[in-house]
Amino acid sequence: MKATPLAIPDVILFEPKVFGDDRGFFFESFNHRHFEEAVGKPVNFVQDNHSRSVKNVLRGLHYQIRQPQGKLVRVVQGEVFDVAVDLRRSSATFGQWVGAHLSAENKHQLWVPEGFAHGFVVLSETAEFLYKTTDYYLPEYERSIVWNDGDIAIQWPFEGEPVLSAKDINGKSLIDADTFR
């Protein structure tokens, strides 16, 4: 599996080696040893999540201010544009974002470490999204930054208005959000 740090080097894009023929395909979707070598630290996943969304649904930008979650995300049906925003005030990339197209076709995965907000928008008619997390979901610590915050200026690759949850409509701006040291 190829591991490529993005413009924010702590966020890593994983590209598996896919073996295919007329019968179908095979690839190793996760190898703990190779993953830890790529991220440079021990990682323990405790929860797997699966969501399904329709076109133009935008989920995010979510994070947990306490017991932050690192996330390894991938798409098993459809296509999304996936985003990570650095919320670590001590980081040289605080408030910056990186994004990647994840799809069932390209089989790429994105590592979003603790200290980042995460979100995605569905580009296909539907998409199924899987992610492993390093800590449990705790709603009392969940926070949301508004998807179109001008200080972050994410270049979402869709036209029109996204379909949002009430939580995401009421997301805070980066300047008003709880962040990490």
Rank of each mutant, 00 (worst) to 15 (best):
M1L: 15
M1K: 13
T4F: 10
T4H: 10
T4V: 14
L6Y: 14
L6N: 11
A7Y: 07
P9F: 13
D10R: 10
D10E: 13
P16Q: 13
G24E: 00
F27I: 11
F30S: 06
H34K: 12
E36L: 00
E37S: 04
P42L: 05
N44Q: 07
Q47Y: 00
D48R: 02
N49C: 09
L58C: 10
L61T: 03
Q69E: 09
R74V: 02
V75T: 03
Q77H: 08
G78V: 08
E79A: 11
E79S: 02
V80K: 08
D86G: 09
S90R: 15
A92R: 15
W97Y: 08
A100Q: 08
H101L: 13
L102N: 01
S103K: 09
W111I: 12
W111D: 00
A117E: 00
F120L: 07
L123N: 01
S124Y: 10
K132A: 10
T133P: 03
T133N: 05
E140W: 08
R143V: 04
R143S: 10
I145A: 04
W147F: 08
N148F: 06
N148A: 07
Q155D: 15
G160D: 02
E161W: 01
P162R: 09
A166H: 06
K167V: 05
L174C: 04
I175Y: 12
I175K: 13
R181E: 15
